[in-house]
Write a protein that binds this DNA or RNA. Sequence first.
DNA 1: ATTACTAAACGACATGTGTCGATTAAAAGA
DNA 2: TCTTTTAATCGACACATGTCGTTTAGTAAT
Lengths: 192, 192
Amino acid sequence: MAKLLQPEAETTDPRILRSRRMLMDALARLLMKKEFEDVSVQEIADEATLNRATFYLHYADKNALLQAMTESRFRDLIERRAITFTGCKGALRAIALGVCDYLVESTGCPTQLSRMALEGSIIPIVEDMFKEGLAHHGMAADADSSLPATTAAWAVFGAARRWFQSPNRVPAEEMAARIETMVSPILFGASQ
Amino acid sequence: MAKLLQPEAETTDPRILRSRRMLMDALARLLMKKEFEDVSVQEIADEATLNRATFYLHYADKNALLQAMTESRFRDLIERRAITFTGCKGALRAIALGVCDYLVESTGCPTQLSRMALEGSIIPIVEDMFKEGLAHHGMAADADSSLPATTAAWAVFGAARRWFQSPNRVPAEEMAARIETMVSPILFGASQ
DNA sequence: ATTACTAAACGACATGTGTCGATTAAAAGA
DNA sequence: TCTTTTAATCGACACATGTCGTTTAGTAAT
């Protein structure tokens, strides 16, 4: 495993940003035609009109690209909706709805999801939002407050994933409400 | 992807059982020396004193073997403790403790866990236990009762995983109790 | 014991993976 | 403008992956 270029987005070099954007876009385009497992690094590089070696300057393998792409696009969706977890229940529902909608609009076929490791990119983001919200709400952001954040994030993702893969889906809004009901005791305590 | 032999354990042919057992044991031995990512199918086959092609008769790739091994060993642990989810809170705590202990005793180094997809094998088992328990408890095992089971399973695994990766772990028993407190409203409703 | 069945072994193949060193070219500062 | 820096390209390499057809040998039933 050779070292990559700038670890994350912490760069302003237009060449780096351009290459990463093109790789993500290329993968997104390929995923509309075939399954992730059947996409090779060579194909991604070709689709992005980049050399295969350039791919490895940025990502360790195609899974790392998938992770980065998922993270970037999920962040976009959250930002587009201007969701901030203020620590209220409504925000929890909005986040759950965001996860549901993201799965629908990003993953063509539900069967694909099972083989893709999206949890690694989505859950940490949701977790951070919960942590921020709980900190804003007065609770200190120590290890005690971050355990519920982690647990709630996994619960939300697991529920949304299950919903997305179920044959007859109820509307996303209804699912988000049910997730809120189930998950809010984790964050706010069983009393509320 | 060629088709494999008997889909799962539904075989009595001693040759098949022997090969699978040897492959799982070989992988377990190799994981004590190096990371999963650095283990090749050839190494696994050599360690198991089997031909590499024989590996592919049983598993699609090394991830599939890891999944099968994890599932088998986690089931063993549950069975050894004779845990049955009767629908009571105590059973939930026992299951949470089982997941915590499994992570400790099966995964050498916590950093390995992040790159391994164990959730795919552990969560479904926990989920099934929850479903069974809820059904026993009178609730019908329809889609409505299985959503909490899924959600709770993800929550338990996420919390246990976080605990396992944290630097200064509290005792597993204490963690199991905290998981029980957080997760039980998902299964039993926020009222109880 | 003979037979039918089929898992395991073996060698070989095309393709994909990850890395390397050397070269070219684009970005940014003097 | 010139210079420095470093990303991108290119060809090549050793190795891993997944599959195939054939042969060997273990299993189970007659």
